[in-house]
């Protein structure tokens, strides 16, 4: 019994009371909810997908069909119910209007934090470093309690500070450039995001070991874009053998 309880405890470093999130993470094995959230999803949309997947009335409906239903609900109901009337005028973003900018510009914050593929976390005493394979983007999360500079200028990935709450890394980011998300909404530079990273044990028998899953839930708030906070999330799996490859100059797809 004691051994079973120990296996369920969060991963805490022996030397520190902070959770051990360091290492290389990457895409989880193909599973319904994780695939739905491949580039981030609303928590409400993901929960809806779970509900319809586990409904015996849907036994004869394919995953593709159920995923489409959950995507429709996310795009037609969940996200619009969070948007201000002014934000609704630009939802969903018409990607065909500027496909090349979407193809060859580094990702903005709300796309980057849900980036698929390899993602490396390095924990230091006074900061945490995030290194994403997508766009080889880097973020520094300051743990020393500093305030954002008074003359902070907004940037692509903003200014992040963090702290630990038990086994959760909490990151708060401000100073984010106006941009758009993979979920189809655009946001202003008043966006603030709180991310909560948790390392959990996945007991689905995929052989990846204890504490093999990293989950993020993010709360997006922006008085220009949202009438109420939007909750989004994604997960990665422990992937020590993966590596981050350099990005070459983006060749604009053949027009």
């Amino acid at each position: 019994m004691a051994l079973v309880l120990c296996a369920q405890l969060p991963m805490l470093s022996a030397a520190q009371s902070t959770p051990d999130l360091s290492g290389m993470w990457s895409d989880p094995p193909p599973r319904a909810e994780d695939a739905y959230c491949h580039v981030g999803c609303t928590i409400e949309g993901r929960n809806y997908l779970t509900q319809i997947l586990d409904d015996p009335a849907n036994i004869d409906r394919s995953y593709a069909e159920l995923r489409s239903e959950a995507q429709r609900k996310q795009m037609a109901e969940i996200i619009p119910s969070h948007l201000t009337s002014s934000a609704l005028e630009y939802f969903p973003r018409d990607r065909s209007a500027a496909p090349l900018s979407a193809a060859c510009d580094p990702w903005g914050f709300t796309r980057q934090i849900f980036a698929p593929h390899a993602f490396e976390i390095t924990q230091h005493e006074d900061r945490v470093s995030f290194y994403y394979s997508e766009w080889t983007a880097r973020r520094t999360i300051y743990l020393d309690g500093r305030e954002p500079p008074a003359d902070l200028e907004s940037s692509l990935l903003g200014f992040s500070v963090g702290h630990y709450e038990g086994d959760i890394l909490v990151v708060e980011t401000t100073g984010i450039n106006a941009n758009f998300s993979n979920a189809g909404f655009a946001h202003s530079s008043q966006l603030t995001v709180t991310e909560r990273y948790t390392r959990v044990v996945n007991n689905d028998g995929d052989g990846l070991g204890k504490g093999n899953r990293l989950e993020v839930e993010a709360i997006l708030q922006d008085p220009v874009t949202f009438q109420k906070p939007l909750l989004m999330g994604r997960a990665w799996t422990w992937a020590p053998s993966e590596e981050i490859y350099p990005y070459e100059s983006c060749i604009i797809p053949t027009k």
Binding site: H38, Q71, A76, D94, P99, N182, T254
Partner: peptide, 25 residues
């Protein structure tokens, strides 16, 4: 227009989850 855009967005989402080339292919 909004309904048409949403339909187009969903159709392309069904095809490929994260491609950025909806206006190119």
């Amino acid at each position: 227009g909004a309904v048409l855009l949403l339909t187009a967005y969903l159709l392309s989402s069904i095809a490929q989850a994260h491609h950025s080339f909806r206006g190119v292919f």
